[in-house]
């Protein structure tokens, strides 16, 4: 590694560079002349041609000494903004490893940031941390309690990671800490728990229940992340798409066949299918098909520095996920960015 000291421009380090959001961020920063160097930190190189300002550095957040390693990188490259996005996009059976990566990995990142403080720390989180709960209001604000989910390690690791970052933000007032809570992201290229779930021809429906759902388009999400890197906003922000739709309408728009079943049956069936690795989501996910977990994007819209408002409606997002273009032939993404 050559410590190419940047003469001017900002230096951004991105963990989880191989995730969809990480990759999109790298691409967008690569084109932006205000950034002189981008460090892509992950366990495998991102799908991006070398030779630009992006430099891949292999960093494994599950290693016990990775915080020292990160601190060295931070000081050597004079990293100005640290983007922490090394989170899993779908539940895994390797729960211990996931815990090491998300919860303990965040601790390592924060240790490094405490040692060599960057100017800005951006964390990628999800609205799933609010949890689906019968008492949730229709729109959860950023101040709502992070209930997580009582037996979902997938969600709870993220809640713990986020609480660490919140504590870090309180203790280090000099660092601008920004947390972005993304609604479930859908789009033509991203792969996560929801895209896998909706890619199946059939989907379970909790008999007699039909909560409202919310998604954000992948391009909107990537745009919001890029904005958050260049902005100066601090605190948590919900990044959500425009509008909501009932779950069964989402399935109808997708053309998926709803399979209504009583809760007990659904839970037992999912338990078996999850244990045999035939479905990608554990039984705890079924709560999100029972109760509301919809966040309010007003704060991100009103913040003068972030000023993010989604450009695509939930229906367009779903159609874009399917690959159906609107009538005039222009893709939604092209139209949104025009």
């Amino acid at each position: 590694m050559s410590p190419a000291a940047p003469s001017s421009g900002r230096v951004v380090a991105v963990t989880g560079a191989c995730t969809y959001l990480g990759g999109e961020l790298l691409r967008r920063l690569e084109e932006d002349p205000r950034y002189s160097k981008v460090l892509a930190l992950d366990i495998r190189p991102p799908a991006l041609a070398p030779g630009g300002k992006v430099e891949f550095i292999k960093v494994d957040l599950t290693q016990p000494t990775v915080d020292a390693e990160l601190a060295t990188l931070l000081s050597r490259y004079k990293v100005d903004t640290f983007v922490h996005g090394a989170f899993l996009s779908h539940p895994t059976h390797a729960a211990e490893w996931a815990h090491e990566l998300e919860d303990v990995g965040t601790m390592h990142v924060l240790n490094a940031c405490a040692g060599v403080p960057p100017r800005r720390l951006v964390m990628i989180s999800t609205t799933l941390v609010y949890g689906a709960h019968p008492k949730n209001p229709n729109f959860l604000s950023e101040e709502s309690e992070l209930r997580g989910h009582r037996d979902s390690r997938f969600v709870n690791d993220k809640v713990r990671a986020e609480k660490q970052v919140q504590r870090f933000a309180r203790e280090h007032a000099d660092i601008e800490v920004c947390i972005l809570r993304f609604a479930p992201i859908l789009g033509p290229t991203i792969s996560n728990m929801y895209t896998r779930f909706f890619s199946r021809p059939v989907a379970p429906v909790m008999m007699g229940h039909d909560p409202l759902m919310q998604f954000v388009h992948e391009q909107d999400a990537a745009f919001a992340l890029t904005r958050a890197v260049e902005a100066r906003c601090t605190g948590a922000f919900n990044i959500v798409g425009k509008g909501v739709l009932p779950y069964t309408t989402v399935l109808a728009l997708l053309g998926r066949v709803p399979v209504p079943m009583p809760q007990i049956v659904a839970r037992q069936l999912t338990k078996v299918l999850w244990a045999t690795q035939l479905v990608g989501s554990p039984p705890s996910f079924l709560d999100f098909l029972l109760y509301l977990c919809v966040a309010d994007g007003q704060k991100a819209r009103r913040d003068p520095s972030l000023a993010f408002s989604p450009r695509l409606s939930i229906k367009r997002t779903i159609l874009d996920f399917l690959g159906i273009a609107p009538e005039d032939g222009a893709t939604d993404v092209a139209r949104a960015q025009a």
């Binding site: 229709n138 409202l212 509008g243 739709l245 009932p246 069964t248 309408t249 109808a252 728009l253 229906k315």
Partner: peptide, 15 residues
């Protein structure tokens, strides 16, 4: 499947 439901509901779910 879209029969009898609209693809736009208001913020609180009225169809």
């Amino acid at each position: 499947a879209m029969w009898g439901r609209s693809d736009v509901v208001d913020d609180f779910g009225r169809d």
